[in-house]
């Protein structure tokens, strides 16, 4: 229950933080860290326009995306090594739950009948399909080390052996997962979260027809998905500060550490976003091939070193 609220509460904060930091890097003032909360509040009170070509898929998709992302988040150890829904699934379930949400969002994009929706859906499915094997390899590397695909087990085993980040396998897998994170959350070299009507867009094209509470749900889910993937990265590869049992001070300490780690990761994402130009769509596979190679090397190095 705590983690449910945590996911809902801090995901807009991270999104806002990234936006503000990015503005500062570009010597702009930016909208302020809390803008995302205000946007959500506003959207939930607005009316909705539903395209007349759309079917029930269009209405159902925001809820499916929202719920699957939320459940994926609950399978993740955030402040303590014990994930609330550990029994319900591990990292494979997380990947596939996010996949289920994406499946329906892509269908909803096509449901509107506009060419933008189809374009976004097509690109989203392509990029995510190419990101999947690299993600799996990175995840396998840690799962093999921990002998489990459940993240509580992974985190526990990582804490026990203390920090092994400088093991080549861990570093390579971390780099692979970082590239996947950039691709999956639609960050700059792959997609541009700041543009709306440009032919480069992917995620934004898919959700162009959404408005009001539906849009709020989708935006919130996208921000939670970003939080889930970022937490996955930081807690699997830098598992410090994770509380080992359910205690209030432990949870608070874990929360502090989590925010610190997420803040650092946000800074690095901002750096990447401001120093890179967006890639052409057909250059994205090259970047993901790099991620795949890194993942393979990570696995090879688990038994070479």
């Amino acid at each position: 229950m705590m983690q449910l609220l945590l996911l809902l509460a801090i995901s807009p904060l991270i999104s806002g933080l990234i936006k503000t930091l990015k503005a500062r890097m570009q010597t702009r003032r930016g909208p302020g860290v809390l803008q995302f909360y205000r946007d959500l509040y506003k959207l939930f009170r607005k009316g909705m326009v539903i395209p007349d070509t759309a079917s029930w898929i269009f209405t159902a998709a925001p809820y499916i995306v929202f719920v699957t992302t939320l459940m994926a988040g609950l399978m993740l150890p955030m402040t303590s090594t014990k994930a609330p829904l550990d029994l319900f699934g591990g990292v494979l379930a997380i990947v596939y739950l996010l996949g289920l949400g994406r499946f329906f969002l892509a269908l909803a994009g096509m449901d509107t009948g506009s060419s933008f929706g189809g374009l976004g859906s097509s690109r989203e499915m392509t990029i995510s399909a190419l990101a999947e094997p690299a993600m799996m390899l990175a995840v396998f590397t840690v799962a093999i080390a921990a002998n489990s695909t459940n993240l509580s087990e992974v985190a526990r085993s990582a804490v026990g052996q203390n920090w092994r980040f400088f093991a080549p396998a861990q570093m390579l897998a971390c780099a692979a997962l970082y590239l996947v994170l950039i691709a999956e959350t639609g960050r700059i070299p792959v997609d541009n979260p700041a543009t709306h009507l440009e032919l480069t867009m992917v995620h934004e094209a898919m959700i162009l027809e959404y408005s009001g509470p539906h849009l709020a749900l989708i935006e919130w889910a996208a921000s939670m998905k970003q939080l889930v993937l970022m937490t996955l990265l930081v807690n699997v590869f830098w598992p410090f500060g994770l509380a080992s049992g359910p205690s209030v001070p432990g949870a608070l300490g874990g929360l502090g550490w989590l925010l610190l780690k997420l803040g650092l990761l946000s800074c690095s994402i901002v750096l990447v976003e401001t120093t890179n130009a967006k890639l052409r769509l057909f250059r994205v596979p090259e970047m993901l091939a790099v991620a795949f190679t890194l993942g393979t090397l990570a696995l090879v190095s688990t038994f070479l070193f």
Binding site: G47, M48, V49, I50, P51, D52, T112, P213
Partner: peptide, 11 residues
């Protein structure tokens, strides 16, 4: 969103 408008419109 009770009371908010929910209309159908063209794409």
């Amino acid at each position: 969103s009770r009371g908010a408008r929910r209309v159908s419109g063209p794409t």
